[in-house]
């Protein structure tokens, strides 16, 4: 993947289109899929629910307008990552279709929506937070074992099934690294960025662990630290303050406090790895995933998404 990524970075747009045509399904997506409902719009494309005429199944489609993508090689990288990995905590890739200047990426549909809906609308118990952290960590540890950093861990990129299934999505900004290789390009979402990313130092896999810590704060507070600030000021505060202050810290259990402490160490060497966190006592209090279902339904009801 690292070699492919380096080759992709040096390819011209025409070569990238050629490579996309080679790896994409030749079917016409407009004919094969019937658009049902838009789910959302992100930086890289629009996501909607569609019916696959081949088997009548409902799928999630990400429609990426290639003309708007300055770094098209990232798209190739995303498809290579999607096609290459299969894990119970990663949103499964089904197929990709090229239609003129639009790329349609078909993925499995999780009808519970994103974790963002839950964290912003309902209150989660520590046991439920621990369950989501465990499932997300399993995905992160798997990616890291394959030499891939996600770089954009946040509640928006964690999808839920109605049965409480938890899966990580959006691999468009992944980086493939060999061993302890480091990266420097600032990638991610400001409020979830690790200090070493913000200060343009070289960073590695543990940026995903920091972002998981920020996501845990989302599950406590409903939003990440500094969300009321502008992105630029948030970056300044991350660099200047380092570890964010967590409101109601004293209400959290000692295990949860220690878990957050290990995620949010500014010193990367002091920060835990994904594998180390999977053995943390806090995850032992994780509740069953099905206990997330009432939260998902409540959030969907509040947001009129049911």
């Amino acid at each position: 993947l690292r070699k492919k990524e380096m080759m992709n970075a040096m390819m011209s747009d025409e070569e990238i289109y050629e490579e996309l045509r080679r790896i994409c399904n030749p079917d016409d997506p407009h004919v094969r899929f019937e658009r049902v409902k838009q789910l959302g719009a992100g930086a890289s494309g629009v996501v909607f629910i569609a019916i696959d005429s081949k088997d009548g199944s409902r799928v999630a489609i990400k429609d990426i307008d290639l003309t708007k993508q300055s770094k098209k090689d990232l798209i190739l990288n995303e498809i290579n990552v999607l096609k290459g990995f299969n894990h119970k905590n990663l949103v499964n890739f089904l197929d990709a279709f090229l239609s003129y200047d639009h790329l349609w990426v078909a993925m499995e549909l999780l009808d519970g929506g994103s974790l963002t809906d839950v964290v912003t609308e309902v209150v989660m118990k520590e046991g439920q937070i621990a369950a989501v952290c465990r499932e997300t960590l399993l995905a992160i540890a798997f990616l890291h074992s394959k030499g891939t950093i996600h770089r954009d861990i946040k509640s928006d990129n964690v999808l839920l099934g109605m049965d409480g299934t938890v899966k990580v999505t959006d691999f468009g900004f992944c980086a493939n690294i060999v061993g302890d290789e480091k990266r420097q390009t600032m990638v991610g979402t400001p409020y979830w960025m690790a200090p070493e990313v913000v200060t343009r130092k070289q960073y590695g896999k543990k940026v995903d662990v920091w972002s998981l810590g920020i996501m845990a704060i989302e599950m406590i507070e409903g939003e990440p630290p500094y969300m009321k600030e502008t992105p630029l000021r948030a970056l300044y505060l991350i660099a200047a303050v380092g570890r964010p202050k967590i409101p109601r810290w004293e209400n959290l259990s000692p295990d949860f406090q220690d878990f957050l402490d290990k995620c949010l160490q500014v010193d990367v060497d002091m920060r835990a790895t994904a594998d180390e966190l999977l053995a943390h006592p806090f995850l032992k209090c994780a509740m069953e995933l099905r206990t997330l279902t009432p939260l998902i339904k409540a959030a969907q009801k509040i947001l009129h998404k049911s």
Binding site: G42, S70, L74, D152, F173, T185, G188, T230
Partner: peptide, 19 residues
């Protein structure tokens, strides 16, 4: 306010326009 909030959650690659 909703659109501002949504923009805040966008992913950035390299130097965003506001830097």
């Amino acid at each position: 306010a909703h659109s501002t909030l949504r923009r805040k959650r966008y992913t950035v690659v390299g130097n965003p326009y506001w830097m």
